[in-house]
Design a protein around this nucleic acid. Structure first.
Length: 410
DNA sequence: CGACGGGACGC
DNA sequence: CGACGGGACGC
């Protein structure tokens, strides 16, 4: 019997009953080479925790691997850490493609959509009514980097309803909070607030492409006139509890270099500096960028949070609380000032114009698209019949950036 | 007598 | 492109 593999943790795991996803989000879904055997998976994934089951999916008749697998861990935090560290890795030196790792959809859900970090990083807790956001942060910061805390309050009296949210940067941090915080908090993963925007964000990229399809690159015309496009500010608004600052935290499932980070965030004028933070315990890309002013940072956050870089991989952008808490009024003012400031900054900055003209010119400098870039959502790639010259805006070696995406950013 | 269980975000 | 087997039974 395969005792070790299928029945560990004191008889807690019983194949047959639907303990496949107990506790929730403790199983990962892998896209691997067809030639990777189970033994390699066991070897590479056991460091993250107690493996309860490994299953390489095979064709029923030919028994050939379909290049996908499931690994069930005892705890969600183990599965999350395995995902964070192994996504994009090569399991063997002669593998041509890096693997993909996602939290598996629960078997009952029936969906095969990739589970996004958005759904795995926010927890919902019950707290004493006396708690402030700062109290909440103090209690939960031991489990990881908190993006923001919020408390549900009576809208008129302002009194707490004893319910709160904590958003972490990484899924494993939220999972650890749920697993390890005092039971009295009744911590669970929060349901994503807006289901609608979730599905629309899924097509964010392709929608943008459609809007601008057929346009010639307009390197000398910036669509600053249509400033009503700031509707995107509301979409990601965190209801006042996020800190506003010049500093932004950037996370990604795919690691990035300092040069890549710079290239992305230098799109928004006013970038002061950026740095990548090397986390030895995670393969996640993690970085910090700082702008000269709050307005640029706000603009960068709301334009680049959820931005796909490389295509198919969403980066997460959040403010780093530097203590200089901005009030709602300041936030609104800053938001309104952003446009005007940006306009002048762009026009006054020769390198920015040069940057655009360079991108809009010829296809002579097209680099190869790197094959080691993990693209979780391949369906979002440009259709092959589209002329490459019109589709790609090559500034970000090694990752090309579609021009329409750039247009939208500006 | 004596302390369980509940739970959702201003568009 | 890349999503679901195997094994077997108690209040």
């Amino acid at each position: 019997m395969d005792e070790a593999g299928s029945c560990a943790s004191g008889g807690g795991f019983r194949p047959g009953v639907d303990s496949l996803d107990e506790p929730p989000n403790s199983r990962i879904f892998l896209v691997i080479s067809k030639y990777t055997p189970e033994s390699v998976l066991r070897e590479r994934f056991s460091p993250f925790g107690e493996i309860q089951d490994i299953w390489v999916v095979r064709d029923k008749h030919t028994k050939e691997s379909k290049g996908i697998a499931f690994v069930k861990f005892a705890r969600s935090s183990q599965a999350c850490r395995a995902m964070e560290e192994m996504h994009g890795q090569c399991l063997s030196p002669n593998d041509t493609k890096p693997i993909k790792v996602f939290i598996a959809q629960s078997r009952s859900s029936g969906s095969h959509r990739d589970v996004e970090d958005e759904e795995l990083t926010r927890i919902f807790v019950m707290i004493p009514k006396s708690y402030t956001e700062e109290d909440l942060r103090e209690k939960f910061k031991v489990y990881g980097d908190i993006e923001y805390c919020s408390i549900i309050k009576n809208k008129v009296t302002g009194e707490s309803k004893g319910l709160g949210y904590v958003r972490y940067l990484k899924p494993s941090q939220a999972a650890q909070a749920i697993e390890n915080c005092d039971r009295s908090f009744r911590a669970i993963l929060a349901e994503p607030k807006n289901k609608a925007s979730e599905s629309s964000e899924q097509d964010y990229y392709s929608n943008m492409r459609q809007e601008t399809l057929g346009h010639e690159p307009r390197v000398n015309m910036f669509p600053f006139e249509q400033q009503s496009d700031f509707s995107s500010f509301d979409k990601n608004d965190n209801r006042g509890q996020e800190a506003i600052s010049k500093r932004l935290s950037v996370v990604s499932r795919v690691p990035f270099t300092e040069e890549q980070l710079f290239s992305i965030f230098d799109i928004v004028p006013g970038l002061e500096y950026c740095e990548v933070q090397r986390d030895p315990y995670s393969n996640y890309g993690h970085g910090v960028v700082q702008y000269f002013n709050v307005a640029s940072a706000i603009y960068a956050k709301y334009k680049l949070h959820g931005f796909q870089y490389p295509p198919g991989n969403r980066i997460g952008v959040s403010f780093i609380d530097d203590g200089s808490n901005a009030t709602d009024l300041l936030r609104k003012m800053a938001t309104q000032m952003v446009a005007a400031q940006l306009a002048s900054m762009v026009w006054n900055n020769p390198s920015q114009q040069q940057f655009l003209q360079f991108g809009g010119s010829s296809g002579s400098q097209l680099p190869q698209i790197q094959t080691d870039v993990v693209l979780p959502s391949c369906k979002k790639k440009a259709p092959p019949e589209t002329p490459v010259k019109e589709r790609l805006f090559i500034v970000f070696n090694p990752h090309p950036l579609p021009l329409d995406v750039l247009e939208d950013i500006f």
